[in-house]
Amino acid sequence: MRHISPTPLPAHSRLWSRVQSGDFIDGYAVDSALSPRAAADIGFTLPGWAKALMTLRNTLMHPFGLKTEASETGDGAIFPVEYEGEDELILGTDDRHLDFRICLMQDGGRLHMATWVHRNNAFGTAYLALIKPFHVLITRNTMRRIARVASGPAAE
Rank of each mutant, 00 (worst) to 15 (best):
residue 16 W to M: 10
residue 87 D to W: 04
residue 147 A to H: 11
residue 140 R to Q: 13
residue 8 P to S: 07
residue 101 R to I: 15
residue 39 A to M: 02
residue 51 K to S: 02
residue 80 P to V: 10
residue 76 G to I: 00
residue 136 V to L: 03
residue 86 E to Y: 03
residue 152 G to I: 02
residue 66 L to S: 14
residue 100 F to I: 12
residue 70 A to E: 13
residue 14 R to G: 10
residue 139 T to L: 10
residue 11 A to H: 12
residue 53 L to D: 02
residue 81 V to F: 12
residue 10 P to M: 02
residue 83 Y to R: 09
residue 154 A to C: 04
residue 17 S to T: 10
residue 130 L to W: 08
residue 35 S to D: 05
residue 100 F to H: 10
residue 62 H to C: 12
residue 100 F to R: 05
residue 100 F to V: 13
residue 87 D to N: 15
residue 76 G to M: 05
residue 131 I to R: 05
residue 79 F to E: 01
residue 44 F to H: 09
residue 28 Y to H: 01
residue 130 L to V: 13
residue 72 E to V: 02
residue 4 I to R: 06
residue 96 R to Q: 15
residue 31 D to H: 14
residue 21 S to W: 01
residue 114 A to Y: 00
residue 115 T to W: 08
residue 69 E to F: 09
residue 128 L to I: 08
residue 64 F to K: 11
residue 7 T to S: 13
residue 49 W to M: 01
residue 151 S to W: 03
residue 50 A to C: 07
residue 3 H to D: 11
residue 110 R to G: 03
residue 34 L to M: 15
residue 108 G to E: 15
residue 40 A to W: 06
residue 139 T to A: 15
residue 75 D to H: 09
residue 5 S to G: 01
residue 146 I to R: 07
residue 127 Y to A: 12
residue 149 V to N: 10
residue 97 H to I: 03
residue 52 A to P: 08
residue 56 L to C: 11
residue 116 W to T: 07
residue 100 F to G: 02
residue 63 P to Y: 09
residue 44 F to P: 03
residue 74 G to T: 00
residue 46 L to P: 10
residue 130 L to I: 07
residue 99 D to A: 03
residue 27 G to L: 10
residue 154 A to F: 07
residue 38 A to T: 08
residue 122 A to T: 11
residue 46 L to W: 15
residue 77 A to R: 02
residue 73 T to Y: 04
residue 134 F to G: 00
residue 84 E to Y: 00
residue 63 P to S: 03
residue 145 R to E: 13
residue 71 S to Q: 04
residue 47 P to L: 06
residue 71 S to C: 12
residue 122 A to E: 12
residue 90 I to T: 07
residue 129 A to S: 15
residue 142 T to C: 15
residue 55 T to P: 00
residue 113 M to E: 02
residue 75 D to I: 01
residue 93 T to R: 14
residue 6 P to R: 08
residue 130 L to N: 08
residue 116 W to D: 08
residue 113 M to F: 14
residue 49 W to G: 09
residue 153 P to H: 04
residue 89 L to C: 00
residue 65 G to F: 07
residue 24 F to E: 01
residue 141 N to E: 07
residue 38 A to M: 06
residue 86 E to T: 05
residue 38 A to D: 04
residue 110 R to K: 13
residue 132 K to F: 06
residue 43 G to I: 00
residue 135 H to A: 10
residue 85 G to H: 08
residue 154 A to Q: 13
residue 91 L to E: 09
residue 18 R to F: 15
residue 92 G to H: 11
residue 22 G to F: 02
residue 119 R to C: 14
residue 20 Q to W: 00
residue 32 S to V: 04
residue 103 C to E: 04
residue 24 F to N: 07
residue 92 G to S: 13
residue 26 D to K: 09
residue 103 C to G: 00
residue 23 D to A: 11
residue 36 P to I: 09
residue 141 N to A: 04
residue 57 R to K: 13
residue 46 L to V: 12
residue 16 W to V: 05
residue 73 T to V: 05
residue 128 L to K: 06
residue 76 G to W: 07
residue 79 F to M: 14
residue 15 L to N: 01
residue 124 G to C: 04
residue 124 G to F: 13
residue 27 G to Q: 10
residue 137 L to N: 07
residue 154 A to K: 13
residue 130 L to Y: 08
residue 110 R to A: 09
residue 146 I to S: 06
residue 150 A to G: 05
residue 86 E to R: 08
residue 28 Y to I: 11
residue 152 G to E: 12
residue 108 G to K: 01
residue 50 A to W: 03
residue 131 I to P: 12
residue 56 L to Y: 11
residue 135 H to V: 06
residue 80 P to L: 01
residue 35 S to N: 11
residue 101 R to S: 14
residue 146 I to Y: 04
